[in-house]
Design a protein around this nucleic acid. Structure first.
Length: 648
RNA sequence: GCCGGGGUAGCUCAGGGGUAGAGCAACGCACUCGUAAUGCGUAGGGCGCGGGUUCAAAUCCCGCCUCCGGCUCCA
């Protein structure tokens, strides 16, 4: 018997059946054979040495591709589990997948791993790699597999849950063995442990079995693996570079904000420079919303608990809300319960309800920079990206269902315009659809989901459907941006709400003078201003576009006798709206320039004797290698004003 | 909240039972300087907080606070 193998370039080759991916790769060339880690057979991944039984489209998976690294990392996870089970008798293992840039494996052990343990495990792994043990695929009937893994309850649970999709079929599972170590696994794996060329264990952490905190907590070890030592080192450098962008670190270095422990977890104070940054962003937000047809409203930070009963938050959002406080009580009468607001929507609804509304007023767009407080569990706080108090650029749009589609289209364009203004270029969206528990009627949900999808299409935005991930009151779009080093951040959210108009009995008068219920859209574009600043800091690595930069120009007098002139240039720039600092420190010019550059100031202006005489200045813009000398002060002002102009 | 690892001068970090150190920053003096660190000097610390053990605790033990990395959740 022969099999006909079709290669990715369309060429066909005949082999005896039982030919393996490795044979084919060797046939094509020795370098390919050397780089091969697995093979794709009719889009199913096979081990390199697994026989191919019938005609198939085959492509060789090499180690320097994402698919190849995935195989390698998965094998690395196995080798790690092998090392752990050897070093920690009595321990058992759960799951160990490849993940982006690495892998992990979850274990149940007597005690958590220490950093020394991690080193020992890494050393043991190196031994296993040096031994170059082949990975051998096998298949087991489910009943046999359960016997085989009887000592490993998590494996048994996995085997019991296996369906035809995961197993070989619905009665058989595949296993991999190298040396004495057997693991349940779909594969494929590297041909042998020796092919794991570069890896490093990174950290250990607790992780609940199946991600549920009601389950036992396992010990997870994270690692990374690459096709070469060089690629591994490059990855570690990348991690380091990302660390340098950390907004908490840069926030302190650039003197933007801090989290003093006297305040409490998750609560930031904004220093003057951060205060300017936040204000500039908020001013931009107010301006663009006003121009986008929104009305600005303001609401208080606390409200009667009853309001949150009506809105439903007291039920479904209780765990994120701070405890009630009782006000206005006395010995004779009970007080009134109040709570701090975790959201702005009920207030905007009350604005809507403050008067009888006509269809002529819709869509009504109510916007607020609303500061909310949410209780977040201590372990999840993360600088500005996850805080307990923050300001949302929040708006609620009340519209008829007939106008919903148009409104969503307009809104999505508006969102993308705003995000682009802050320097983001790449976007992705999730469309979250009706969950099991929901309010409103199924048809209305269907229509709303269709409108959302259509608006995404119209905006040309790539999106994924997150089935069943919508809020119980309506479907939503979440928009993610990609930052300068390729990380994704969720910023904007657009949520259709059928529930609140119902809860608050909202109405409008139609042209026929009947009463209809409006549809509500909740939407935040920057999301939280705090979080947005955090993302901006990381995206720009602290070097903000000039219109956002807290200090836009530093003026450096060459010697003390130039201070008067420096101050006058500073005053002129200040009058022109440029945020400027004059550095009068008793230091050398070089030192002061270095400080200005380190602080990421966009423009450095040096003035000396020649400038005083000629009414000029030396100008050095961020990113330029050299300065320009003798630029007329008027020209400096015109140019900087132009560079500092906000996008709108 | 749970599991690890941290908290020593404004910042980055040494020191791990005998009473606290460096670099940078700050301040002072000299230098008056033309595009990424001028030199010299000075000051600065209840070693996160509270207990305990000890002749003696930054150091060992217990509790708490807080930060970092994860789990879960999310703007």
């Amino acid at each position: 018997m022969t099999v006909l193998i079709t290669l990715p370039d369309g060429s066909e080759r005949k082999y005896d059946d039982g030919v393996t991916g490795f044979d084919i790769a060797s046939d094509i060339g020795p370098r390919l054979a050397k780089a091969a880690v697995a093979v794709t057979v009719d889009s199913v991944m096979y081990d390199l040495h697994r026989p191919i039984a019938s005609d198939a489209a085959v492509s060789i998976v090499t180690e320097n591709t994402e698919a190849g690294r995935h195989v390698m990392r998965h094998s690395a996870a196995h080798i790690m589990a092998q090392a752990v089970l050897e070093l920690f008798p009595g321990s058992t293992f759960a799951i160990g997948p490849a993940i982006e840039d690495g892998f992990y494996y979850d274990f149940s052990v007597d005690r958590p791993f220490t950093p020394d343990d991690i080193e020992a495990i890494e050393a043991k792994m190196l031994e296993i790699v040096a031994a170059d043990q082949p990975f051998e695929r096998g298949e087991l009937e489910i009943a046999d597999a359960i016997t085989q893994f009887a000592d490993h309850p998590f494996k048994v649970e996995i085997i019991r849950g296996v369906d035809a999709d995961e197993g070989v079929d619905d009665t058989t599972v595949s296993t991999y063995r190298n040396d004495g170590f057997l693991d349940l696994c779909r594969g494929p794996h590297l041909p042998s442990t020796g092919r794991l060329t570069a890896f490093k264990l990174l950290r250990s952490a607790g992780a609940y079995w199946r991600g549920d905190e009601n389950n036992p907590q396992l010990q997870r070890i994270y690692g990374t693996a690459w096709e070469s030592q060089k690629a591994l080192e490059e990855y570690l450098v990348r991690l380091e570079e990302a660390g340098k962008r950390d907004h908490r670190k840069l926030g302190a270095e650039l003197d933007l904000f801090s989290f003093p422990s006297e305040l409490g977890s998750g609560l930031a104070i904004w220093h003057p420079k951060g205060g300017i940054l936040k204000t500039v962003i908020e001013d931009y937000s107010r301006r663009t919303h006003r121009n986008g047809g929104y009305d600005y409203v303001v609401s208080p930070h606390i409200a009667k608990a009853d309001l949150w009963e009506t809105s439903g938050h007291a039920d479904f959002y209780a765990e994120n809300m701070y405890p009630q406080m009782e006000l206005d009580g006395s010995d004779d009468k009970d007080g009134q319960a109040y709570v701090v607001k975790p959201m702005n929507c009920p207030f905007h609804i009350l604005v809507y309800k403050s008067s009888i509304r006509s269809y002529r007023e819709l869509p009504m767009r109510l916007f607020e920079l609303g500061t909310v407080y949410r209780y977040e569990r201590s372990g999840v706080l993360h600088g500005l990206l996850r805080a307990r108090g923050f300001t949302q650029d929040d708006a609620h749009i009340f519209t008829t269902e007939a106008m919903l589609a148009d409104e969503l289209n307009t809104l999505l364009d508006f969102v993308l315009m705003v995000l682009r203004d802050f320097g983001f270029e790449e976007f992705e969206a999730d469309l979250s659809t009706r969950p099991e528990k929901f309010v409103g009627d199924v048809d209305a949900w269907g229509r709303a989901e269709a409108y959302l999808a259509a608006s995404l299409d119209k905006a040309g935005l790539d999106f994924q459907i997150a089935a069943g991930e919508g809020a119980f009151y309506g479907p939503k779009i979440d928009i993610h941006v990609k930052d300068a080093i390729g990380r994704r951040w969720q910023l904007s959210t657009i949520q259709v709400d059928f529930g609140q108009p119902e809860n608050f009995k909202l109405e409008y008068a139609t042209a026929e003078n009947t009463r209809e219920r409006p549809v509500m859209i909740h939407r935040a574009l920057l999301g939280s201003v705090e979080r947005f600043v955090g993302v901006l800091v990381e995206h720009h690595a602290g070097a903000f576009p000039m219109w956002l930069s807290p200090v836009q120009a530093t003026i450096i007098p060459v010697a003390d006798r130039h201070q008067g002139y420096a101050a006058s240039v500073g005053e002129q720039l200040n009058k022109a709206g440029i945020r400027v600092e004059v550095d009068t420190a008793d230091e050398t010019v070089g030192d002061k320039i270095r400080k200005a550059i380190t602080q990421k100031h966009p423009a450095v202006i040096v003035v000396g004797d020649n400038d005083v005489a000629a009414g000029t200045a030396g100008l050095r813009l961020r990113g330029d290698e050299h300065e320009e000398r003798g630029v007329a002060v008027d020209t400096v002002i015109t140019r900087l004003v132009e560079l500092a102009r906000p996008p709108r």
